[in-house]
């Protein structure tokens, strides 16, 4: 069970409160977590990564165990602490605008 913390607007869109959890089969990477997240919450498709290019949206970042994973390969295995559910994967919106 992988824990994911979403920005407030995406929690509202997914109609959830607090952290969400997803089951990930195989290697736990940002790619596999996002796949599982979008399968469980299809209304989030396209909101974290572009529909067409599948690239991370520029104003979003990924953090795991206090490290910035935004520019790492999406299929790179996440830390064991995230894979085993002790730590969440953070999807963070950039602080910009008003």
């Amino acid at each position: 069970m992988v824990r994911v913390e979403l920005p407030a607007h995406l929690r509202a869109l997914a109609r959830v409160k607090g952290e969400v959890t997803v089951e990930v089969a195989g290697t736990v990477s940002i790619l596999s977590v996002l796949d599982a997240l979008e399968k469980k919450y299809p209304m989030l498709e396209g909101t974290i990564r572009d529909h067409g290019t599948r690239a991370r949206r520029p104003f979003l970042r990924f953090f795991a165990c206090s490290e910035d994973w935004s520019h790492d390969p999406l299929d790179k295995p996440l830390p064991e602490e995230v894979a085993n559910g002790n730590e969440p994967l953070l999807v963070v919106g950039a602080i910009a605008g008003g």
């Binding site: 997914a14 109609r15 979008e38 469980k40 299809p42 209304m43 498709e45 909101t47 529909h51």
Partner: peptide, 13 residues
Amino acid sequence: TTAPGGSPKGESN
């Protein structure tokens, strides 16, 4: 929209 396996898709976007 939160139920797993409900199979709606985000195609509308």
